[in-house]
């Protein structure tokens, strides 16, 4: 155990000079009993200050001793009885606090300290255990949330795929493949269109990620004139979406427009297009 912090605290000096309150002095006395190094240090401090006191010695007048010895012999009969007046409290300061207590209270103090430490250790143990459980629960919850999300995504994919297959196999629907119009790009989309009812679906899942603030807009053209077929949802980019009713289309095209769409397509922002076969 590193005792240097106690030795260097200045408390031992205060203790030696009787400047510590009794409870703190009692602590130092307990430490002295436990650690010979501290006892040694206390002795060294006492020796130093005693030497200092010796250095400032002042020889008393001769009659002081005479008076003293006279009063002692007069009191010899009661010499051992402790003095009643004066300030005995301060004399007591030098006496170890622990010494004044009965052995039972010593035991009680030791026992209560033991219990206190045990309780403390148990509390720490419980606390740590509880913290661990909390962490575990949080991790499990996170995992569960993640799994739910994954399941949700899978379900969407499955339903999207089912819808895709359904749309693909529906004889009333015509599939029109849209492809990149610029030579250096390779994007695709698919339109499913019921020529008679006008029902229109788009599968935008192969379109590139759109910049923030922009949105894909689907158009159909009749005699070269673009008609709005609706905005492609920003949140549901992976699944097939139902678009506006469309009749007589000869061509489909998707442009990049500002979020919310435009009344007329920005032709230079056309990303994919496809003719009705």
């Amino acid at each position: 155990m590193d005792l240097s912090c106690i030795i260097q605290s200045g408390d031992l000096e205060l203790y030696v000079l009787g400047m510590l309150p009794p409870d703190e002095a009692g602590k130092i006395e307990a430490l002295c009993k436990l650690f010979p190094e501290i006892q040694q240090e206390v002795d060294a401090i006492a020796a130093t200050f005693e030497a200092g006191a010796m250095q400032m010695a002042v020889t008393p007048s001769a009659d002081v001793k005479e008076k003293l010895m006279a009063s002692i012999s007069a009191k010899t009969g009661v010499a051992v009885a402790p003095e009643k007046n004066g300030s005995p409290v301060k004399v007591v300061e030098m006496k170890p606090v622990a010494e004044q207590k009965s052995s039972f209270s010593k035991f009680a103090i030791a026992a209560s300290w033991g219990l206190f430490l045990l309780a403390g250790a148990f509390a720490v143990y419980l606390y740590n255990g509880n913290q661990q459980l909390k962490t575990d629960v949080a991790t499990l919850q996170q995992n569960a949330t993640k799994s739910e999300q994954q399941i949700g995504e899978l379900a969407k994919e499955v339903s999207s795929y089912q819808l895709y297959r359904q749309l693909k196999s529906d004889p009333s629907l015509t599939t029109i493949a849209l492809a990149s119009v610029k030579p250096n790009e390779d994007f695709q989309a698919e339109v499913f269109w019921n020529k008679t009812s006008g029902e229109l679906f788009i599968d935008p899942s192969y379109l590139p990620q759109i910049p923030i603030g922009k949105q894909y807009q689907l158009w159909f053209l009749i005699d070269g004139k673009p008609i709005d077929a609706g905005m492609i949802s920003l949140t549901n980019t992976a699944s097939i979406q139902k678009m506006k009713e469309c009749k007589g289309a000869q061509m489909f095209a998707i442009t990049v427009e500002n979020e919310g769409g435009s009344p007329t397509p920005t032709m230079e922002q056309m990303i994919v297009a496809g003719k009705v076969g």
Partner: peptide
């Protein structure tokens, strides 16, 4: 006088006589 009268409350194992007296 106080030292003389209270010497029985001094415990050699707990401290040094001179220090005890100085504090008194």
């Amino acid at each position: 006088l106080k030292i003389w009268n209270n010497i029985n409350s001094f415990d050699t194992s707990k401290g040094r006589l001179f220090t005890w007296m100085i504090n008194i």
